[in-house]
């Protein structure tokens, strides 16, 4: 089973929830927020292997090229331009789809690997840890996320820490997950972006629930929203200076007595919700 953690709004506590739940529920952890992976700060894994991720990009032999322009026409990402004197290639726009190579009638294009980031694999507390890292100034995280997800070992349940927002990167991380946890905060921005995230998971038909972080009132706009939309509230993490202090020191909240209890509660609610989802899905099959 794969559980994805997303939020809509950034900085609501995806990594806090992901790392603490992974540790307390004894789950593998995969950081798919490859533009800024930070789960390692809290889980402190021993990294055993780091491998580069490449995308195939065109290398054009100008002696063979006839300047027909078919490659530029075929490029959906405007990474190629045929000028009067050559074909220009803008590597940061290339998605590595290979269309230009296929359409080139002169066979002037050779595909070469361009590194865009890397994937690290290791262990924390005898559990599997993985994260991806996009190189600085690279705009395209998709291939790293896809490769990360392909490397997830079968058999053990895995937490997938997603990027903020509802972009392609989040969609890629969410694909083929069994349950999604939406982490939010009781602010207008939190609610606004939560609604976008809800739309996304509903669209992808992934069962989901919400965790409210920095929860400081018995009634707040997120709870009201959950009620009107009949969305499961998995739990709440109280607004506390202690949380901020522990986070700033790279500590897991599960190491704290009070917050450890809160995460145990969240974990048990989560298990119940997932079990009932599985049951419902089973009934639907019958």
């Amino acid at each position: 089973m794969k559980i994805a953690i997303l939020s809509g709004k950034g900085g609501t506590g995806k990594t806090t929830v992901s790392t603490n739940l992974a540790q307390i529920m004894r789950l593998n952890y995969v950081d798919c927020d490859v533009e800024e992976p930070n789960g390692y700060i809290f889980l402190k894994p021993v990294i055993q292997k780091t491998e580069e991720v490449f995308i195939p990009v065109p290398l054009i032999d100008s002696d063979v090229c006839t300047l027909c322009g078919k490659c530029a026409d075929s490029c959906q990402f405007n990474a190629l331009a045929r000028t009067m004197s050559n074909v220009l290639f803008f590597e940061e726009l290339c998605h590595g789809c290979g269309a230009c190579t296929i359409v080139c009638p002169a066979l002037a294009i050779e595909e070469v690997n361009r590194p865009i980031g890397n994937i690290s694999t290791g262990e924390y507390e005898s559990l599997n840890f993985m994260d991806g890292k996009l190189n600085i100034k690279e705009p395209m995280a998709g291939p790293i996320i896809s490769k990360l997800k392909k490397s997830i070992p079968e058999g053990i349940d895995t937490i997938i820490d997603c990027a903020p927002g509802t972009s392609c990167n989040v969609v890629k991380a969410l694909e083929d997950t069994d349950y999604a946890i939406l982490v939010t905060e009781p602010t207008k921005f939190g609610l606004h972006d939560l609604k976008l995230a809800v739309k996304l998971v509903r669209n992808m038909q992934i069962p989901f629930g919400i965790i409210i972080n920095r929860s400081d009132e018995t009634v707040n706009m997120i709870k009201v929203y959950c009620e009107t939309e009949t969305i499961d509230l998995i739990g709440e993490i109280p607004f506390s200076r202690r949380v901020a202090e522990m986070y700033s020191n790279g500590l897991l909240l599960t190491k704290d007595l009070e917050f450890g209890k809160i995460f145990h509660e969240i974990a048990s609610n989560l298990r119940n919700l997932i079990d009932s989802e599985v049951e419902q899905a089973g009934d639907a099959c019958k």
Partner: peptide, 19 residues
């Protein structure tokens, strides 16, 4: 047609002007 491109509108527009 480049106006609606997600990225690289300038490249595509310049290609058009070349064409």
């Amino acid at each position: 047609s480049a106006a609606a491109s997600g990225h690289g509108a300038g490249i595509s527009a310049a290609q058009k002007v070349t064409d």
